[in-house]
Design a binder for these strands. Structure first.
Length: 487
RNA sequence: GCCCCCAUCGUCUAGAGGCCUAGGACAUCAGCCUUUCAAGCUGAAGACCAGGGGUUCGAAUCCCCUUGGGGGCACCA
């Protein structure tokens, strides 16, 4: 790390691999990234894997994949705290030597009963500082028992700590509401509080942007920086993203991980645009911003303080906007994997790319997500359509005229040699008048016969893409259906 | 229980004392366009700015209290 690091803008995203990242985690990463990019600074990735017990296998890869998918490139790292253990132990040791920390031999059981007592007496749960002032004799005795101690911070008994939060302004905590929190666990791993501040210092982090849930731990961190005689970074606590029940986002809300959004066919740019607007705004009207614009305009001054419930409808809308903005070629490129994944197995692979191009040109402005594409386009690919006869005729009475209409249309189309949308329209539109039907009634009927559904892309274009052979075959199938229905 | 944070339409938000009879977006509803759907366009409805006190000539904007919501108080992060 160069010496200029000490003065430059350096942000970090420091997730712990205890689960897969969700919207809240990623929004934090995004704001850090935006802030770093806006200031021409560095964005660093650090994995805080100090909780051996809760570590989730494969989580690190998912975190990296999520960031890569969104295009949040990091400039350094990933660093792993589990590979830096000696550093934390050394710092913890130093704190003991300088009388800012002490060894604690209290058993989890003792702590547990202590907390239960406190709860019973409606007292705040706080470590009672039992080991803070052990005599040398007591220390020696406890050491002899072989109990693995933890290292606790000697929180000042009196006074208060005030820090300036870039979003909240000055925030003050009295020391007596803090307790002697643990720095180093008995397994030799540091806790978040220790590892986090040690690394932020060693990695020259200039700004700490994290969720509001960390606000009340910040005085501990400030105290640690002071004890170590280090300069603290600037803090900015971002408003949280809440679940529909207004509670902190968690697995309970369907655990929608960021990779799940990818799977459901959301575009990274749409996600980024949407997520940035959760807590930040440019002005009173701008909703759609490119990454470049976001980077250009992002500032902490325009970050709000109120927690937000994320609104899936709006995300869908925005994704639709981004989908429509794609060039036809790019849309195909994006949608192809989804078609491959979701179209029924019966559809022959590989898909014909010329055909797919034609089909998707009719689908693009109708899809809100890429995952919807297969559903919207399936009838283009299936050999046989399955649908309710009721769609062709509302009741037996209408079945016969319906069959007659389809037969006539089918005969007319049989003769067509130039199978394109204009020709088809030129033939079928007059037919409606001829049969004394409204255009809507005729086209609606044919649409069901050709697509198996009542809502589909425009009929003539659809038929043009499907091709003559398939269309006529589907008319026959519809007639079959109607005849079985009549008999 | 204690501490901290927050408080504008259902949701995301604009608003940093007079521009606010509170603006935009999503969703909703209606109309237009139209062969259905989608898109687009137009319009409607939707917030007595949580409530109550102040300060001020004047408050959504400043202060206080209340209420509500959230977060934290682990050998989790």
């Amino acid at each position: 790390m160069q010496s200029e690091s000490e003065t430059s803008v350096r942000l970090r995203f420091a997730p712990s691999p205890t689960g897969y990242p969700h919207l809240g985690n990623i929004r934090t990463a995004l704001f850090n990234w935006l802030f770093a990019r806006h200031h021409g600074g560095k964005f660093i990735l650090r994995i805080e894997d100090t909780d051996v017990a809760r570590k989730v296998e494969g989580a690190v890869e998912v975190i990296l994949d999520s960031l890569r998918w969104l295009g949040l490139k990091w400039d350094e790292g990933p660093y792993f705290q589990s590979q830096r253990l000696p550093i934390y132990r050394e710092i913890a040791q130093r704190l003991i030597e300088e009388d800012h920390a002490y060894l604690c031999y209290c058993s989890p059981e003792r702590l547990e009963t202590m907390r239960r007592e406190q709860a019973k007496r409606k007292q705040p749960p706080k470590y009672d500082r039992h080991c803070r002032d052990l005599t040398q004799h007591e220390k020696t005795q406890l050491e002899a028992t072989g109990i693995a101690p933890v290292i606790r911070f000697k929180t000042p008994l009196e006074g208060k700590t005030t820090f300036y939060d870039l979003i909240h302004g000055p925030v003050t905590f009295k020391h007596d509401v803090l307790d002697d929190f643990i720095l180093l666990k008995s397994d030799g791993y540091p806790t978040y509080h220790l590892a986090n501040i040690v690394d932020d210092h060693l990695m020259f982090i200039s700004h700490v942007l994290r969720g509001d849930e960390w606000l009340s731990s910040t005085p501990r961190h400030v105290l640690l920086y002071q004890a170590l005689n280090w300069q603290a970074p600037q803090f900015a606590h971002l408003p949280m993203i809440l679940g529909p029940d207004r509670a902190k986002l968690s697995k309970r809300h369907g655990a929608i991980t960021i990779t799940e959004y990818q799977r459901q066919g959301y575009l990274p740019d749409a996600m980024i645009n949407f997520l940035t607007l959760l807590g930040w705004s440019l002005d009173d009207r701008t909703e759609l911003l490119s990454q470049e614009e976001l980077i250009k305009h992002f500032s902490l001054e325009r970050v709000g303080k109120t927690a937000a419930i994320f609104n899936r409808d709006k995300l869908e809308w925005m994704n639709g906007v981004y989908l429509r903005k794609l060039s036809p070629g790019e849309f195909v490129r994006q949608a192809m994997p989804f078609l491959d994944r979701d179209l029924p197995e019966s559809v022959e692979r590989p898909l014909n790319s010329t055909y797919v191009n034609q089909v998707l040109s009719l689908i693009q402005e109708r899809a809100k997500t890429l995952a919807e594409v297969s559903q919207l386009a399936s009838f283009f690919f299936l050999e046989e359509l399955k649908y309710d006869t009721g769609l062709l005729s509302s009741g037996k009475l209408a079945a016969e005229p319906a069959a007659r209409t389809i037969t006539i249309a089918s005969q007319k189309l049989e003769e067509v040699t130039t199978w394109d949308a204009t020709t088809l329209e030129d033939i079928l539109r007059p037919l409606a008048t001829e049969l004394n039907l409204s255009a809507g009634a005729l086209f609606g009927l044919l649409r069901v016969a050709v697509t198996g559904r009542t809502a589909a892309p425009p009929l003539f274009q659809t038929m043009a893409v499907l091709g003559k052979k398939k269309c006529l075959k589907r008319f026959d199938a519809a007639l079959q259906l109607l005849s079985t229905y009549l008999s």
